[in-house]
Design a protein around this nucleic acid. Structure first.
Lengths: 363, 363
DNA sequence: TCGGCTTGCTAATGCGCATTAGCTTCGGAG
DNA sequence: CTCCGAAGCTAATGCGCATTAGCAAGCCGA
């Protein structure tokens, strides 16, 4: 396979000029060229005229440093990795990491880093955890993790090696794993505070039967807010939190009516991947012949599913995805220089929406 | 596994493992490691067991090649660059490159390349045209370009150096620049063919007063299709193509009525960044008290603006953005192995939509 | 017995740059 | 006159890898 490429076409240029060629033109050494063009941060004495000659030569030849060589010599890549455990750009928009990436890219650019996208799954769909997949991220100076299904073992290994990793989304299973997350608790408290301010006295939360940290946090926010705002659950004494295994089957018009009879005027749902809980709640309220915000108030702990864009905007909060992405980058770059990041929680933005109002006077 | 690295703490392994460390673990030379991991394309004899030992050692240490070093030594590193001249992930959805990236990521993954996103312009707007910004892409084996405002000079330089670049979107200003684009001409012809098949005899195209290649191509598609389908322009003999400098001011209800009196039953608009032309046409038709597809037919050469999602779906075609991204990757990888790419045009998908039908019998 | 072949591996080199440790000169203090 | 230090520059080295040349055995036929 020894096809020698040196003898290119006469026209084809012999590559870009090197520092050595600039040096020859300027009558100095390559070292001097590097010094001049590199800004001479080490403060080595250089004659102004020499400097000028080098600069002139560089301009004349159109010299541009080779980024690969520069990075090799400086032993940094200026690359941040983004690893997601599903395709980073899935076709199904609802699972898209796009909003996070908006923030990631902005912050990375601001800090002078480029981004490398790794895909955890192979394209064919036969993505059964390619063994070394996660290891590839070492190519970058540090890496951001997206998605819930990070293989713990592979991850632990990276972390233990001292490789800088930041997980987007709260994550407590690996003690040394840095993460950033949305402050669901605080956001939930705020929502409950608003409901109380509107005059509500009794509320329930419908959530998935799931133990994702995000769900847990949202429930905690609800409960904390409930207490803090002086609210209560149904008068029957039942738990104000309902875990729905099958929302459609459990959150029925009758269920809504029963809760109302127990004095509940505010119904809160948590955001889920599919929006199933919120959807079920809306359907049940409709089915009961009621409507928000007149007959009762609805709130959603999170953002509504995209396909419900035509429905009235839910009262609740938005997860600041872009801000989370940016925060993750900041934590990561802090790790790169050995600093410990401070606050990993990013505040959610309260969304007034149109599904909550004062409770009906009748109740 | 032995802790015989003198200088390091037992705990902290400095940085990623090198080939030299893999070699030590496997009891071979760095050369052998490079051979094994590099696929040994030079066909040097290697014992299968040695190979296995090396692979095992590499896996154990989590070895990943350094892209910069690889690039420096071999001029390739399995990385494809994506460079855009505005933020790759802009907040404004209409300028989003997301749809392209879907295809780019899929195809790149399929071909075993990872992606480097070069953060071309900073979101803050601070570094409009950092001189060397484009040069950074040389870290990747080849690069995809997105966006219209690529600095021609910097680009020419890359191309002339033989660096593989593919522009997404037709581009003829740089003779040796490879590109992929949507086949607007063919798509336009198809739309006109359909209109003719529905019974229309006279049509007009409203377009921006703009010389973007995409606009030119769409107009060409319209004209070609008009002729091919045996259609004509207004009976008055005016040009069937209207360049609207200010669509809102020019495309009025009266204008629509006049064209209809000239026998025009099909009104075609081109897609623009803002959707202004299509919007103006819809407004004018409404204003004239007419409606599509009963009183006349409307077609849109391209996709409707997102905020008009609730309006009836326009008849027309969709630009296959994901397919374009994938095609761009294929062209790029072809360039990498020195092959010349064949067909840079990707077919658009006809969209039946709901704004076109047979012309009213009265006319 | 020996040259020639094959098999299996390694030493050495260089990619383009940044960095460090010098090596000259020259002016001035002693 | 020395001697010293600053000014002004360069040789040498290494970053991590791919690649080339070549070395050491083992084997075979003559």
């Amino acid at each position: 396979m020894a096809e020698d490429n040196p003898p290119r076409t006469a026209k084809a240029r012999r590559g870009r000029p090197r520092q050595a060629e600039v040096a020859r033109l300027a009558g100095v050494s390559q070292t001097t060229v590097s010094l001049v063009l590199g800004g001479n941060k080490q403060g080595i004495a250089l004659h102004a005229e020499t400097r000028a000659r080098v600069l002139a030569a560089a301009r004349e030849l159109g010299y541009v440093p080779d980024p690969a060589a520069r990075r090799l010599a400086a032993s940094r890549n200026n690359l941040l990795g983004v690893f997601s455990f599903t395709a980073t750009f899935p076709t199904a928009v609802e699972h898209s990491y796009y909003p996070f990436l908006v923030g990631v890219e902005q912050e990375a650019a601001a800090q002078g880093f480029d981004l490398v996208l790794f895909t955890g799954s192979s394209p064919g769909g036969a993505q059964a955890d390619v063994p070394g997949a996660l290891e590839r991220v070492r190519l970058a100076d540090g890496c951001l993790l997206l998605g819930r299904h990070a293989p713990t073992a592979a991850l632990r290994r990276l972390v233990e090696d001292g490789y800088p990793v930041v997980h987007i989304g709260r994550r407590d299973d690996l003690s040394d794993l840095a993460w950033v997350g949305a402050d669901y608790v605080d956001a939930g408290v705020e929502v409950m505070r608003r409901l109380a301010a509107l005059g509500h006295r009794r509320a329930v939360l419908v959530r998935e039967d799931d133990d994702a940290t995000a769900s847990i946090d949202r429930e905690r926010g609800f409960r904390t807010g409930l207490t803090a705002a002086g609210l209560a659950g149904p008068s029957g004494g039942g738990d104000p939190v309902v875990r729905a295994v099958d929302p459609v089957a459990e959150i029925t018009p009758d269920w809504v009516r029963e809760r109302r009879e127990e004095g509940v005027t505010a119904f809160v749902a948590e955001e889920t991947d599919t929006g199933a809980v919120w959807r079920a709640l809306l359907a049940a309220v409709d089915g009961a012949g009621l409507s928000a915000p007149d007959d009762l108030s609805l709130a959603l702990l999170g953002s509504p599913p995209a396909d419900l864009a035509d429905r009235p905007e839910p009262t609740g909060f938005d997860i600041p995805r872009a801000a989370l992405g940016a925060a993750a980058v900041r934590v990561l770059t802090a790790l790169l220089v050995g600093a410990k990041a401070d606050e990993p929680l990013v505040a959610c933005a309260f969304r007034a929406g149109a599904t909550a109002g004062p409770p009906p006077a009748a109740l």
